[in-house]
């Protein structure tokens, strides 16, 4: 029994060390990008892309922030921008579809990279699949879709 516990203690410690070596530098870089306002610039740069989905340009900003930072923060921001920028319900759904498939992409990818997984492959696959899926949803969910009417009461 003792050898099993030692195995678990040593093993988990080593894994945490590996993850810390990747996550801590990553978060420092993210903080620098945030403080220099680069994150906002990136978000503004990419936000017009949501026009592909027939979404309002204002919806792009919370989308990019959610992709980079994460869903809990992203969801708060979506709700806030929904109120401030009067985002249509359709935009909210499409945003959420994209974000449930791809959020906190750097952080999530980093913890797998610690185990030797190809981070670039994970990152690109996740973004492309989320983008394609959202595109399909945007074609299917016409602005006057009856699906939207049904969901409005929620």
């Amino acid at each position: 029994m003792l050898s099993i516990l030692t195995e678990a203690a040593v093993g988990s410690f080593n894994s945490i060390k590996q993850i810390a070596f990747i996550v801590i530098p990553l978060m420092i870089v993210m903080e620098i990008l945030k403080d220099l306002g680069i994150l906002d610039k990136i978000a503004r740069l990419f936000s017009p892309l949501v026009k592909i989905y027939d979404m309002k340009e204002e919806s792009g900003f919370p989308l990019v922030i959610g992709i980079v930072i994460g869903l809990s923060y992203g969801a708060g921001m979506i709700i806030q921008s929904a109120q401030e920028d009067k985002l249509p319900r359709r935009d909210l759904y499409l945003l959420t579809y994209f974000l449930v498939a791809a959020h906190a992409v750097f952080e999530d990818t980093a913890i797998f990279v610690a185990f030797g997984v190809n981070g670039m492959l994970l990152f690109i696959t996740r973004l492309i699949v989320a983008a394609l899926f959202t595109y399909l949803a945007s074609r299917w969910m016409k602005p006057e879709s009856p699906f939207l009417e049904n969901e409005v009461n929620n």
Binding site: S12, V23, I24, M27, M30, D35
Partner: peptide, 18 residues
């Protein structure tokens, strides 16, 4: 401050993860 905040947030993730 920026470096410290980044370091702390990385540390916090590591802690939550642990």
């Amino acid at each position: 401050d920026t470096l410290k905040r980044g370091f702390m947030s990385g540390l916090k993730i590591t802690w939550e993860l642990s």
